[in-house]
Design a protein around this nucleic acid. Sequence first.
DNA 1: TTCATGCGCAACCTCCTGGTTGCACATTAT
DNA 2: ATAATGTGCAACCAGGAGGTTGCGCATGAA
Lengths: 107, 107
Amino acid sequence: MGVPLQEAAPLFAALGDGTRLQLLARLGSGGPHSITDLSRASALSRQAITKHLGVLSGAGLVRSRRQGRECIWELEPGRLDDAHRYLEGISRQWDEALDRLRAFVEG
Amino acid sequence: MGVPLQEAAPLFAALGDGTRLQLLARLGSGGPHSITDLSRASALSRQAITKHLGVLSGAGLVRSRRQGRECIWELEPGRLDDAHRYLEGISRQWDEALDRLRAFVEG
DNA sequence: TTCATGCGCAACCTCCTGGTTGCACATTAT
DNA sequence: ATAATGTGCAACCAGGAGGTTGCGCATGAA
């Protein structure tokens, strides 16, 4: 099946922060950005943004490349599909459980 | 559109814990369970399970009803769809960004 | 060369999270 | 009536998360 628990938990944990979701949304809609660029739009310090990007990177949601003295970050879109699939897994289990219950009740 | 940031962050945060994902999986595949029932399968104390269920409930992922002296918990499946939709939102943004980039590069 | 910019590392602080234990209360079983 | 079971509430604790500041180092601009 799709994504095991040990992998899914830190993935969702990385998604479970407003600042990080904003970063993902920004990288998703606006394309790649440098750290300073991202922090200028965020009221937080550059270091805070760096830490958040580190968390997202650790979860495989984002990737960086060095370009001159800048560090450019962009989405790693495949990981979102993993989270996607995991949710589908639970939803499907739930639907099956409802079906079994219905079958049992209706005899 | 779908799910705003302020709502999605705590939702994913609730999903970002292995114990809670196990609880969801258990409730999804095995149907409703009482707290003691859930904690017997989990090596953690009953109170820990109670707290986790509280977090899941706060995120709208799960619901409880009192039945005699027991407290029965079950999935609230609609919320999973919310998380689902949010991920789709970011993925779609990303795909659109890629399309724009492709269009730009190919002139 | 000299200055400014972008970044990384490390220390530090505060608050929240995950976990425990102990006790009290309601409900069922004997 | 008494005992056992299932919960809830509160206090408490250790560790991690999110944030800041300060400093040093590379890289690009004047």
